[in-house]
Write a protein that binds this DNA or RNA. Structure first.
Length: 540
RNA sequence: GCGCCUGUAGCUCAGUCGGAUAGAGCAACUGCCUUCUAAGCAGUGGGUCAGGGGUUCGAAUCCCUUCAGGCGCGCCA
């Protein structure tokens, strides 16, 4: 509906020879008395034209082809408010019902290749809530962009090389030692969660005394491999249950084995961005706005983590994506300038990489702050929460917030309130419609009779027609939460309607007209929930 | 000290490329189940949009500043 309006406004502006370079914004008025849609375009143009906004608005209205509109008026400081003709609204509604796919699947992209990398948690322990948040946002974003016509690829980058997995192996080694009855003190930086001891037990059960009395040098590599593979498997399982799929999993270790790390650095060197200082090799990231240059090869000859990350991004660039989206925890924000610098040095435009920072999840326990630490083993895992309140509820909680809002998460309160989580409100609307159709038996919806729709029904229909606009904004800003809020509003309208009217009655025409409305609501609810990765249950 | 993010109702959060009277859920209070699912509906109360200054026709939204909170500032990953 908003697209039709934009086209009409654009035509009017051309007729008036007004500047064509201003983008036409259309918005849903706060107050429905103002109409179905409105535009502040006249106020925008008034600045350029040095005219009064209301006068510009009047001119636009005169030049406007009014075929769709029942009423167009100037209001307030210069808004133009539009009220659509009933027949136009109904024809759009009919489109929704009969050409569901075309109506919902807007082509907002010509198949641009977008890669979204998210979660990418070190395989050194279970996923915690922060990862869950990133997972929910990343996968919803992938759904949305894919639906909008982008060619989306999702990826998990596995940090299976370097210090962290080594520490994991060492932690398991110490756990084994304890299992064998030795009094050993775990080093401070070891992981100490229960899962470490579980891993040790499992290893012992499988390999028996063969691993007894061995030094870390002897069995370290094996322990590392076994442990992180096992953890990775659990991460995959958790993500799967959480409704998150990755098209690919890329191993950091492999980047070393294939020589890609080395090659990436050679590339940078040839481009003149690498120099030597104090026995180390540096990347001149300051050339691209970073605060200081960064080491890529330490003076002891080993690579830094950043070196493999450069290689990873080069690898991504070489795969020919038009856009890279990295979803990171906000604690990595200091890392952004250097990665962007690297990407630019490798020849990609900075506008092609977007780094979405997902803010920290602040854990509370009965109102009091609660420190989460993987190393100390005090953390709430995604698995715990899913088991407790379910994947849908968990996803919904994460998707009702902007990615950069600091999320307060009180586990106890959440458990207590899970039964009144808004996700059920939305799902319930869907289940109710299903039961109406179950009762209506035949299932087939005959053509509605437009004249039979009352004001309440028309209001719902208009709400349905807003969905494509919400969806478009969600794509544009890369913000899935906009859909979450819309769905709650739509569900609210439906529940209210459901209570006030009966869909099935003796009057066959009326029944089918109302069934058509329900069908429309169902189509949109399903689509929205699918975008969020939340189930649309038939029964609750 | 420097940088990034945040501060909106009692609580959790929307609304922010400047736009009309600032919204929702929860909590509180009042009603509504012989009807297609009460995980629901109808209603009431609740706000210095952290404070101050500025920009302008217009600011929760932009700029400056103060305060408060979170997170970063390694030849760690």
């Amino acid at each position: 509906m908003h697209k039709n309006l934009i086209i009409k406004i654009d035509e009017a502006l051309k007729k008036l020879n007004y500047p064509a370079d201003v983008s036409i914004e259309v918005e849903i008025p706060k107050n429905e008395a103002f109409g179905d849609l409105s535009t502040p375009i006249a106020m925008e143009l008034a600045k350029h034209l040095k005219k009064y906004p209301r006068a510009v608005a009047e001119e636009i209205i005169l030049a406007l082809d009014g075929e769709f509109f029942e009423e167009v008026s100037v209001a307030g400081p210069g808004f133009i408010n539009f009220k659509f003709k009933r027949e136009f609204v109904l024809s759009k509604f009919s489109e929704l019902l009969h050409k569901e796919e075309e109506f919902l699947r807007q082509k907002l992209s010509n198949g641009q290749k977008v890669q979204i990398e998210f979660v990418s948690a070190n395989p050194t322990g279970p996923l915690h809530l922060g990862h869950g948040r990133g997972a929910a946002i990343g996968s919803a974003l992938a759904n949305i962009l894919r639906e909008a016509g982008y060619e989306v690829s999702t990826e998990y980058y596995i940090n299976d090389a370097g210090r962290q997995v080594e520490l994991l192996g060492l932690s398991v080694y110490y756990a084994l030692e304890r299992l064998f009855g030795k009094e050993v003190q775990m080093p401070e930086d070891c992981y100490k969660g229960d899962y470490i001891f579980d891993l040790a037990e499992e290893i012992y059960k499988t390999y028996g005394d063969g691993i007894k009395n061995k030094s870390f040098e002897e069995i370290g590599p094996f322990l590392i491999e076994f442990s992180y593979q096992k953890i990775l498997k659990e991460i995959r399982t958790d993500l799967e249950e959480f409704g998150v799929e990755f098209n690919s999993w890329v191993s950091e270790k492999k980047l070393y084995h294939t020589g890609e790390v080395q090659r990436a650095l050679i590339n940078l060197k040839e481009a003149g961005y690498i120099y030597e200082k104090d026995g180390a090799l540096w990347f001149r990231s300051t050339s691209f706005g970073d605060d200081k240059d960064r080491v890529v090869i330490k003076s002891d000859g080993t690579y830094t983590y950043f070196a493999s990350d450069i290689a990873y991004h080069k690898n991504k660039i070489d795969r020919g994506y038009d856009e890279l989206i990295n979803i990171w925890g906000a604690d990595h924000h200091g890392y952004i300038p250097r990665v962007k610098a690297a990407v630019q040095a490798l020849g990609m435009s900075p506008s092609q990489i977007k780094i979405l920072l997902v803010q920290m999840v602040n854990l509370l326990k009965e109102g009091k702050p609660f420190q989460m630490s993987k190393r100390a083993g005090t953390f709430v895992t995604l698995r715990d929460l899913m088991d407790e309140i379910g994947a849908d509820t968990t996803r919904f909680i994460f998707l009702t917030r902007r990615h950069d809002s600091h999320l307060e998460f009180d586990v106890e309160v959440t458990k207590k309130q899970s039964h009144e989580n808004p996700v059920f409100y939305v799902q319930y609307a869907h289940a109710r419609i299903n039961s109406i159709f179950a009762k209506a038996e035949k299932g087939s919806v005959k053509e509605f009779i437009g004249e039979l729709f009352n004001e309440d029904e028309l209001k719902i229909i208009k709400k349905l027609l807003q969905y494509p606009m919400i969806f478009e904004l969600s794509v544009h800003f890369r913000e899935p939460h906009r859909i979450t809020f819309y769905l709650q509003e739509l569900a609210s309208l439906f529940h209210s309607y459901y209570h006030k009217y009966r869909v099935i009655s003796e009057d066959e025409d009326l029944t089918h007209t109302r069934l058509a409305l329900c069908k429309g609501i169902m189509i949109v609810l399903r689509h929205g929930l699918r975008m969020l990765g939340v189930k649309a249950p038939e029964r609750m």
